[in-house]
Write a protein that binds this DNA or RNA. Structure first.
Lengths: 340, 340
DNA sequence: ACAAAATATGTTAGCGTTAACAATAAGCTC
DNA sequence: GAGCTTATTGTTAACGCTAACATATTTTGT
């Protein structure tokens, strides 16, 4: 009306309206055709599909999300994707969600709770229909962000005791305890626990290890905890420190396989016989751990299944269904191999 | 007007209008405050920020993208995130893009060109402002999808000869050749090339290896190529096949470090001395490769830098600037270690 | 002191899609 | 064949935000 300059049409963007015009129908029918479910005559559907293909139409999620109040996005927060454990978990999540046409919007927290909150805030701008968090320890602000729009949330890797919260994982504490009992069964008395990247799951493993040693009547372990990020290189370095401080140590539980592999290699290099002079155990069962020489004893964790089941639980919540259980324990498996 | 039932207000969603009301100002000022750049009086800005914080306002990217024709999303396609190489590349991309408030929307192609096209179509629904692709080989349909909206695209890991296309990477072919020359320098005459997951980059390494062997006057290598996904386990299995068919082989170039590590471990298990009885080289220099015993000879690839530089180049393109170069070669480094 | 320029804020109309209706055509019951 | 249901298609008004203007308000130059 008022003589405003019309906005420059964005070049080349094909909209639902263009498709409708080309197919000789209305926008809403095109919308229905693309969402599948609605009833359309096969004839109309075919015409629309042809027109859309010819024009190279790609639906706009932003517009769709705005209009429908469903984004078909799921926000996923993981500590790191340098760690294969979380990558495999993501693969499980994606396998389930992509089937239902949900898109994963992912961010990494670098194991820092404040970073989790910051990244979550960024992901919420995508108006996700649900959220998957790693672990059960979150800042109050993080939980607050999820409270106002009452977003469905599932926590992964650990089991929550909190009422009204959903979680899929296993007992990290029991995992550590399993290693302790294994050490006891092998007759190792002077043990150690070496950990890096002291996230809650790592600490829980240590706590379980300590507890179970006590339960079977063994001495408390020598402990070496450092805040650095785990790596094979760090495992080698920490092994040196352990042997310097406790030359008589018999068995060491490394909080994950990266460290354990590094220690294993370093023993080889230093000519320390594993397990005769020193037994080594890890955690997670990374793909290479079965193939090192000696093969690494470790606790295999079902992260792919955790990803799948978490996604399924979230799917239930997003569709308004009640999940069978609010807390799903998928357990773990001790693999006693050559290194112990 | 017509007595339509008003749409249920979506519960709990705080909009820019709510913030404006609470701060006693207009929507546009809130919008400006959140986008930073626009000029606002410090007083108004403070009031808006306070109101937004109190209400727990989170901007809606979908609405913003729709209104501004800029999504601040960048689509990234990688073959796999099980492969650490691409994870590190992603880290480089994210380091640069998150700085400029862009969000990465990522999908994996599983090394399948048709899957790349399918996933790209899904990502385009996010109306990304730019696209990062892995490799320079794409289906015609894939390129077509990117042509219509004239999206900025940068190709990563390989160098494109195509005019008008942008790429950041290194010569995979030359990487393979470097191993060949290294083998020649060490005096190995009977060589082999073992590859899995036959993507274009893997094949280029093989081609370079073959070419350079010829150049230095050595026999063509024994070759074992399988389509399976690379893994440590597969490396061990392939080593057996190599030794069965060519017991007199002196040096084997595995197309990546996963396979090479598996072969290394397997030699150890079978009591084959590396490098005395058999020399082994890999490709990529994974973190563990410097720590195995013997340490693995390999070609270190600058994937983190490739990620960074690709993102910077894309940033240039998205802002309408012309990148310094359309093709950026970041090279590679041969690490001759104990395994050769 | 007064126009000109710069700064700060507001108004309006979409962006591309879908929910909620409305309308029309076709099929069915008895 | 009237009255009802069902299947198919269309119309309109949002969704939450920002571009493009318009309108104060202040600063600057001379």
């Amino acid at each position: 009306m008022a003589g405003r300059k019309p906005r420059m049409p964005v070049k080349g963007r094909v909209t639902i309206e263009d498709v409708a015009a080309a197919a000789g129908t209305s926008m809403i029918s095109v919308s229905r055709a693309f969402r599948g479910s609605a009833r359309l005559s096969p004839d109309l559907r075919a015409r629309i599909e042809k027109a859309a293909a010819a024009l190279g139409y790609v639906p706009d999620r932003a517009a769709s999300a705005l209009a429908s109040a469903r984004s078909m996005n799921v926000a996923v927060l993981v500590p790191s994707i340098t760690n294969m454990v979380f990558v495999e978990m993501l693969a499980g999540i994606d396998a389930v969600l992509s089937e239902e046409r949900y898109q994963i919007i992912m961010a990494t927290t670098n194991y820092v709770p404040a970073e989790e909150e910051r990244q979550l805030r960024g992901l919420l701008a995508f108006r996700p229909d649900g959220v998957l968090l790693t672990g059960i320890d979150h800042l109050p602000g993080t939980l607050n962000l999820l409270k106002t729009p009452a977003l469905p949330v599932v926590q992964m890797m650990e089991l929550s005791g909190e009422a009204g919260s959903y979680s899929v994982g296993f007992s990290q504490d029991e995992g550590g305890a399993a290693i302790a009992r294994h050490f006891a069964g092998r007759g190792y008395g002077r043990t150690g626990f070496v950990a890096a990247q002291l996230d809650p799951r790592t600490l829980a493993r240590g706590a379980g290890f300590r507890r179970a040693l006590k339960e079977v009547g063994l001495d408390a372990p020598y402990e070496l905890l450092v805040p650095d990020r785990s790596s094979v290189a760090l495992g080698a370095a920490l092994l040196d420190r352990v042997l310097e401080e406790r030359p008589d140590i018999e068995a060491v539980f490394f909080c994950n396989d990266d460290l354990a592999q590094g220690a294993l290699f370093h023993c080889q290099r230093r000519g320390i016989a594993v397990p005769q002079q020193l037994a080594i155990a890890g955690f997670n069962d990374l793909p290479a751990s079965a193939w090192t020489v000696p093969a690494l004893s470790t606790v295999a964790t079902p992260r792919y299944e955790i990803g799948r089941k978490s996604a399924e639980m979230l799917l239930d919540l997003m569709c308004g269904r009640t999940p069978k259980a609010a807390r799903l324990d998928l357990g773990f498996t001790l693999h006693a191999r050559e290194s112990t």
